[in-house]
Design a protein around this nucleic acid. Structure first.
Lengths: 201, 201, 201, 201
DNA sequence: CATGAATGAGTTTTCATTCAT
DNA sequence: AATGAATGAAAACTCATTCAT
C-alpha cells in the first residue's frame, strides 16, 4: 500500500527534475542521462518509472494540468461575475508562489512544440482533451454571463474559441520571441479585457 | 560551356522536395538522406547547396514568405475597405491553386515547433521579423479604417495584436488537433468577422 | 551487486587492442568501428571510455611510458657505471618478453606521425613533457659520469641532446624505411657506443 | 614543345601553392578544394595534373630535393675542407632567400608524418632513395677527410649515419615541439661541430 | 527496487574523385 | 585544356533502451 504512494511520488519527482532541462534544451536535446543525473537516480531507474522518454513529458503535462485546475478552482470560488471568472481563467498568479513562471512558459513551449511535431500520440491525445475541457469551461462561464444579462447575446462556441485561441496565440507568439512572464501578462490582459468589453451588454 | 545549373533554382528545388517530409515527420525525424532521395540527388549534393540541415528550413521559410507576400499584394490591390483588407490578410485561397494547403499547414506547424524549441537562431530571428512586419501591416490597415471612419477609435497596437494572435492561436490549436484546411477556415473566418464587427463604427 | 568492471582495466584493454591496428594503418585510417571490433566491444562502448578517438592514442602513450619507465628503473638498478646506464637507457630488450617489438616500433612511428601533424594537442603536450624528462634523465647520468671521472668535461646539455636526437633520428629513419627491430638495434648500439667513446676520459 | 613546358610549370605551380596549406594543416586536413582555390584553378584542373592528392606531395618533395641539391652543389664548390663541406651539407641558409624556412620545416614535418604513417608508397620509396643518396654523399665527404688526414680513421658508414641521424632527430624533435628555424639552427650546429670535433685528427 | 555498463542503430557531415559540358 | 556540379563511401559520434547483477 505504502509502496504504491512512494512509486508515484518518485515518478513525479523524476518528472519534476526534468522540467528545467526540458524547458531549456527541449525534448530532443535533453538526454535521459541528464534527467537521471538531475533527479539523482541512475539511468536505469528512470526506465523503471517511464517506458519511454516521451512518457516523462506526459507526466509533466499531467502535473501542469493538476496545477492549473487547482488554480482555477481556487480562483473561481472567489468570483461573482462571469467577467471576473474569465479574467481569472487566464490568470496564473497563484502558480507563481511555488514555481518559476518563466520555466513553466518554456515548458509550455516545449510541450506545444512536441505536439506540433506530431511526435507523440499520447501527448496529442492529451492536448485534445484539454482543449475540449477548456472550451467547455469557457462556454459555461459565457452562458452564465448571458443568462445573468452580464453579456450580450453571442455565439457561445465562437466566443469561447476566440478567447481560448487569442490567449494561446499570444502566449506562443510571445514565448517564441523570448518575452518573459511580465511582458506577456502586459499583453494578454488588455486583450482579454478588450474581448470582454466587446461582449458586455 | 559548363553544365548549366541555376544554383538558386536547384537550391529551391531541393527545399521544396523536403516540404512533404518535413511536414510529415518534423525536422528532427527527417534525415538529410531522405531529403536527398526525395529530391533525386545524392546526399552530398544537398550539402553543396545547404551548409546544414537547418538551412533547408530557412529556405522553405523564405519561400513561404514570398508566397504569402505575393498573395497579399494581389489581394490588397482589389480591396477598397479596411475590413476587406483584413479579411484578405488572413485568407490564403490564392495559394491553393499551386499548393496542397494541408501540407503547408503541417509545414507551418513544423516551423512553429522548431521556433518553440529555440533550436535554430536563424529561424527565430526570421520569425521575429515576420511578426514585426505583420503587426505593422495590420496597424496600417486599422489606421486606414479609423481615419476613414470605418472603424471606431481603438487602441491600434492592441487591436493589431489581437487580430494576429487570435489568428495564430486558432491556426496552431487547430493544426495540433489535426484539423484540415477546410475545418480551419470554418473556424477562423467567423472569428475574424467577430473581431471586425467589434471595432466597426 | 553491480556487474563489476574495473574501468581502468577495460579502458586499457581497449587501448591495447587498438595498438596493432594503429601500428598498421595509422590513426586516420583506423576507424573506431575497427578498434571496437578488435576489442570485442560495441562502438558505443569505446565512447564510454574515450571521449574521442585521439584519447585512445593518449592512453596507449601513457601505457608505453609506464612500460619504458619500468624498464629503465629495473635496468638502472643493476648498473654501476654511467656508460652502462646510457646503454641501458636506449635498450628495450626487457620489453621484448611481453611485446612484439616491431608493433611497438610502428606504434612509435604512428605517434610521431601524429605529433608531426600537429593534429592532437594533448599528444604534443605529452611529447614535450617526455622530451624534458628524457633530457633530464640523460643529463643526470652524464653529470654522474663526469663527476666520477668516467667522462671528460663536456657540455652536459648539448651532449644529452645529441644522444637523444641521434637515437630518435635513427629510430625514425629506420622505421620509415621499414627496418625491423633487429636491424635497428644493429644500427643504434654502435652509434651509442661511438658517442660514449667520444666523451670517455 | 612549348605546351610541355607549360604543363610542368603549371603542375609545379599547383604544388607550390599547396605548400603553405599542407604545412599548416597536414595532408589529411588539406582538401583538394582548398589547394585548387589557393592555386586559382578549378578542382577538376588539379586532377588534370595529379592523379591523386598524394601525388601533389610527391611533386613538392621533388621540388624540395631539387632545391637542396642545388643548394649543396653551390656550397660545396666554395669549400676546401671536409669539415666545411659537412657543415654546409647541413646548412640551408641559401634557401632562405626564396623561401620561408618555417613553412619548409612544417612541410618537412608533414612529409615525415606521411612517411611514418606508411600511407603513401611513392613517398616512402622516394624517402629511401634520398636516404641512400644522403649517406652516400656524407660517406664521400668523410672518405675525403680521412684520406687528406683531416679526420681520424673511422667507421665511415657508421659515422655518416650518425651525422645524418642526429641531424634528422634534432630536426624532427625540434619541429615537434614547435621550435622555429633560428632555435633549431642554434641546436643543430653545435651538435654537428661536436661530432666533427670527435672525428678530427 | 536500483544500477550503470553495454549496445548498435541512426544521423550528420566531409571530401576525393569523376565526368558531362 | 578547363571547369565545377555531382557523387556516395566513409567516419565520428550520440543516445534511447536493455539487462545482468
Amino acid at each position: 500500500m505504502l509502496r504504491k504512494v512512494d512509486k508515484n511520488e518518485k515518478k513525479r519527482a523524476i518528472a519534476l527534475a526534468a522540467i528545467p532541462l526540458l524547458a531549456k534544451f527541449g525534448l530532443v536535446k535533453t538526454s535521459v542521462e541528464a534527467i537521471a543525473k538531475e533527479a539523482n537516480v541512475a539511468k536505469g531507474t528512470v526506465y523503471l518509472y517511464f517506458k519511454t522518454k516521451e512518457e516523462i513529458v506526459l507526466e509533466i503535462w499531467n502535473y501542469a494540468n493538476e496545477l492549473l485546475d487547482k488554480n482555477r478552482k481556487e480562483n473561481f470560488s472567489k468570483d461573482s461575475t462571469a467577467s471576473e471568472k474569465i479574467n481569472h481563467y487566464f490568470d496564473f498568479s497563484i502558480l507563481e508562489e511555488d514555481h518559476n513562471m518563466d520555466i513553466l512558459l518554456k515548458l509550455l513551449a516545449m510541450n506545444m512544440s512536441t505536439i506540433l511535431n506530431f511526435s507523440h500520440d499520447g501527448l496529442v491525445k492529451h492536448f485534445k482533451q484539454e482543449r475540449i475541457k477548456e472550451i467547455d469551461t469557457l462556454e459555461k462561464i459565457l452562458k452564465e454571463g448571458t443568462n445573468s444579462g452580464e453579456f450580450k447575446t453571442i455565439d457561445i462556441n465562437l466566443t469561447a474559441n476566440l478567447f481560448a485561441n487569442s490567449f494561446h496565440g499570444t502566449l506562443l507568439n510571445s514565448i517564441a520571441i523570448n518575452k518573459n512572464i511580465d511582458e506577456i501578462r502586459a499583453i494578454i490582459h488588455p486583450q482579454i479585457d478588450f474581448l470582454i468589453d466587446s461582449i458586455k451588454s
